[in-house]
C-alpha cells in the first residue's frame, strides 16, 4: 500500500454556503479540506501551515482576498491559489494573475468546473 500524502486545500469565502458546497465534494475526492469564512482566521492558519492549494474569494470584510493571496504566495510560493469571485472585473483578474494565481473562476461555477481546476493545479505541483 502506498503512503501518498493527501493534497491539502484551504477554502476562504465569507459566504458559508460556498464552503458548505465545496467541502464535502472535495473530501469525497480524497482532499484534506479546511474552510474559513473570516479572512483573519484564514490568515492565521496559513501562517501556521502551508497548504498545497488555496481557494479564496476576493471581496471580503477585513483582510480582502487580494491581500490574503499576496500573503499566501509570499509565505509559500509553491502553493497554488485559485481565485473565486462573485464580482469579477478585468482589473481583479489581471491583478490576480500578476500575483501568481493559478486560475481565476467567476461565480457561479459548477462543482465539476472547480474540480477540474484543482486537478490541474495538483498536476502542476506534482510536475
Amino acid at each position: 500500500m502506498t503512503d501518498k500524502a493527501q493534497t491539502t486545500i484551504l477554502i476562504l469565502d465569507d459566504e458559508p454556503i460556498v464552503s458548505k458546497r465545496l467541502k464535502p465534494s472535495l473530501e469525497k475526492k480524497g482532499y484534506e479540506v479546511e474552510t474559513f469564512t473570516v479572512s483573519i482566521d484564514a490568515m492565521k492558519r496559513v501562517r501556521e501551515k502551508n497548504f498545497d492549494i488555496v481557494i479564496t474569494d476576493l471581496k471580503m470584510e477585513g483582510v480582502d482576498g487580494m491581500q490574503f493571496l499576496t500573503e499566501v504566495k509570499s509565505r509559500s510560493p509553491e502553493t497554488e491559489v485559485i481565485v473565486i469571485t462573485g464580482f469579477a472585473t478585468m482589473e481583479t483578474a489581471k491583478e490576480s494573475f500578476r500575483k501568481g494565481v493559478f486560475d481565476f473562476l467567476a461565480k457561479p461555477f459548477k462543482l465539476g468546473e472547480i474540480a477540474d481546476v484543482i486537478s490541474r493545479a495538483e498536476k502542476k505541483k506534482q510536475g
Binding site: E15, V18, G86, F87, A88, T89, K107, P108
Partner: peptide, 12 residues
C-alpha cells in the same frame, strides 16, 4: 446562490 452570483456579475 448561483442566481444571486449571476446577478452580481451582471451588476458589476
Amino acid at each position: 446562490q448561483e442566481s444571486l452570483e449571476l446577478i452580481n456579475q451582471i451588476v458589476t
